[in-house]
Design a protein around this nucleic acid. Sequence first.
RNA 1: GGCCCGUUGGUCAAGGGGUUAAGACGCAUCCCUUUCACGGAUGAAUCACGAGUUCGAUUCUCGUACGGGCUACCA
Length: 507
Amino acid sequence: MSDKKVRVRFAPSPTGGLHLGGVRTVLYNYLFAKHNNGVFILRIEDTDQSRFVPGAEAYIFDCLKWAGLEPDESVIHGGNYGPYRQSERKAQYRQYAEKLIADGYAYYAFDSPEELEKMRIDCKTDQNPSPQYDRFTRSKMRNSLTLSFEEVSKLLSTDTPHVIRIKMPENEVVSFTDMIRGEVSFDTSLVDDKVLMKADGMPTYHLAVVVDDYLMQITHAFRGEEWLPSSPVHILLWKYLFGLNAMPQWAHLPLILGPNGKLSKRDGAKYGFPVFAMNWTDPKTGELTEGFKEKGFLKEAFINLLAVLGWNDGTEQEIFAKEQLIEKFSIERIHSGGARFDYEKAKWFNHEWIKKLPATDYMPEVKQLFEQKGIVITDENKLSKVLELVKERCHLLPDFVQQASFFFSRPDSFDTDAIKPKWNEAKRLFFAEIVRNFELTGLWNAPELEHNFKEIAAANQIKPGEVLLPLRIMLVGGKFGPHVFDIAQILGKEETIARIKLVLSLL
RNA sequence: GGCCCGUUGGUCAAGGGGUUAAGACGCAUCCCUUUCACGGAUGAAUCACGAGUUCGAUUCUCGUACGGGCUACCA
């Protein structure tokens, strides 16, 4: 098993947005595959026709492309183990279910949804609020265990709607070694007879995941912790169908929690942070759920923050590039406890990456943001210089608009209230002199301007600190931004002087 | 209700018998900066509780509590 080529898979169902937990599962699959020179597969689990959502599949691929976590094999990347969409594999599953029946491990069940509902109501007690279709109840239901051979044959030959259920053994202990939590075991008498084949001819997840993992020769299977309770069903299926030796090693990833429990998109809406990788618009309701990308996250930061939400390399390092993650990733260092998502820390990661990366990396996105605000950038060279200058003040990409638009267009308003209380005639005369001096300056650069500015202040017996803030307000509009003479240099002689004059007229 | 998983500062977490119980985010104060940031410094935890094992438990075992997940012809 260990000498086999590593093959892992991410198997989402295309029913909506791709949330944080999903992306992290993709990430861990990807990192594990790359670390081991293995193959990362994306399999679409679309066995539930009633939940089909147009566009969701393409959306998943878009997210992976953005995040830089593209699969090696998939519906669009090809591969020798297709089809990679379960709906297209429909014909393959029935034979395995039939084999299970022939071997006595499964059975036909003809109960209608109404009959199931009735059973649940009838059997419901305070002691047992959610009755299962299990070894107790199956004897009272209409299935090939209770019906005669003739009846079953007749029902089958007349195409009576039916499902196939696994027959959970009594009093067996199913256990396996999870790569993250060690040995986990279950008492089979407490597990219900899960449906394997649905009445519409499609398999359920339980059958499909086992058959497909086998057929696609998956060696390691990562999935969320929410699957742990149904793992005994999968283990048994492996045992009955392909043998435990062929079974992949399981790793049940801890959940990513929201402010209250499992992260939901409602949490995001409520607490003001994204939960999806990219914007997702529900085609039915038209409802838009914001994504990390559109919120202004860099893919490097997004991957980084997800990677360390439940994993660390044992050192103090927190900032990792994808290549480093591939090199250092190991399943042993994944935490077993769930982690609460902290949006403040997520923003910190983004800030770190904004600072770390050259501004030209994200200049196209920022340029677009500027244009959305009506500021057209013609000089990209200037833009990149400006972005470098202000990037340490930006946590999210849209912050650049606030931090840098004054370089390209005059502020709509100037915070003159910050100047007025201490404004006087001496300062007015000082700035008039500054204007004259700046107009005559031949060398337009920050050190020169600062030198002149301070000289003149001294000559007028004004402390530089008293006129620095007014100058800033004149050029920037508010109390923020980089060193004011750096700003003046980039703004250029003409615009700097124009702004000083403009604000002077407002005071 | 039952089953399963988990539990180190508000959050992410290192450490896995003897430590001053790392570090990061956030918060507070200070330094730097005559703006805002960056950077630097400082501050804050009886390791959920109770037993047991041990010379010694945050670390091992068992209980309890709490949190979470599952309990569909959904994944």
